[in-house]
């Protein structure tokens, strides 16, 4: 039990430090334009990398994942509310499983 607790503590520390250090250190620094530009692209790059190819394995079957992917893309292209994109993606996966299996 003690070992488990210490392991969790260790996991907590190694997760927290990368979250905390850049924010605390860089907040008081005005980064040079080139770096600033790099960091402004980070969210979009991270989102791209987080979405694909991970989404293909999100539901346990590639066809149903593609159904959810397509529905979410179509809704997002119409610029609907993010909550609606989430529900649309879930609905598409459920419907695919219900109709196709």
């Amino acid at each position: 039990m003690l070992e488990l607790c210490l392991t969790i503590l260790g996991m907590g520390i190694v997760t927290y430090v990368p979250r905390m250090l850049p924010l605390v250190i860089l907040n008081e620094i005005k980064l040079p334009p080139r770096w600033h530009n790099f960091f402004r692209f980070i969210p979009y790059a991270a989102l791209g990398a987080l979405i694909f190819p991970g989404i293909l394995t999100a539901t346990g079957s590639i066809p149903s994942a593609l159904a959810g992917f397509t529905a979410a893309l179509l809704l997002a292209f119409r610029r609907v509310n993010v909550v609606m994109v989430v529900f649309g993606g879930i609905a598409a996966v459920l419907m695919w499983q219900l109709l196709v299996g």
């Binding site: 979009y44 989102l47 791209g48 987080l50 979405i51 991970g54 989404i55 999100a58 959810g68 992917f69 529905a71 979410a72 893309l73 809704l75 997002a76 609907v80 509310n81 993010v82 609606m84 994109v85 989430v86 649309g88 993606g89 879930i90």
Partner: peptide, 8 residues
């Protein structure tokens, strides 16, 4: 994933 798509 759908949320990420809706944001991006």
């Amino acid at each position: 994933y759908a949320m990420f798509i809706g944001l991006l």
